[in-house]
Design a protein around this nucleic acid. Structure first.
Lengths: 97, 97
DNA sequence: ATAATATATCGTCATTTGTCGATATGTCAA
DNA sequence: TTGACATATCGACAAATGACGATATATTAT
């Protein structure tokens, strides 16, 4: 496991903002359209778009374009990667525990 | 598992700065004195102190005062907590995987 | 083709963050 | 008690970040 000190911040930045955590919690309920997320948050449309870009860059969220709508969902793969970073740092390396 | 959108950013902010990730990597080798960390990083003493505060606030690192020295080490407990946040969000809840 | 709608991008601004040097605090040795 | 040293705190400043409204792009319906 390579622990790239440039890349790791990109992944975990997703979790460093209150609104982004709210978005992740909303996505726990399954894939959601951007317009649905917008309804649920007190931010403007451009701000939501900004946060979704950061979330997708982190790998924790993936977007799917469907006509004029964007659907977002959690990426199990992205979360596995994030967990393995934590395990690698804390010395448990993801094999056990 | 309560997913507090105020608290979660505090935990993961630790991992959102390149120098802090470097510090965590240094601590993978075991407990280290602040002065040792200072030698290994290209930042001033006050900056290191600032980062150590953020790392300790996150719970991923614990400090131990020994006379005039501060020794820092990774907190397995803190990492377990962080992993369980990720698992809770991604819907695996820490029981399995 | 035109209009309507969903999302992304741009420019701006206020706040936060990372950095520094200077200073304060706390601890040990002489 | 004084001086030396390790660390923390303070004040300042530049850069990054989150927010907004305005505009651009893309897609669908008329």
């Amino acid at each position: 496991m390579r622990l790239d000190e440039k890349k790791i911040p990109t992944v975990f930045k997703a979790l460093c903002d209150e609104n982004r955590v709210k978005i992740l919690k909303l996505l726990m309920g399954g894939e959601k359209c951007a317009c649905k997320l917008l309804d649920a948050l007190n931010v403007g449309q451009s701000t939501l778009s900004h946060h979704m870009k950061i979330l997708c860059d982190s790998g924790l969220v993936v977007g799917r374009k469907d006509g004029k709508w964007m659907h977002y969902s959690l990426s199990p793969e992205g979360f596995r990667k994030a967990v393995s970073y934590l395990n690698a740092i804390s010395g448990q390396d993801g094999k056990d525990v």
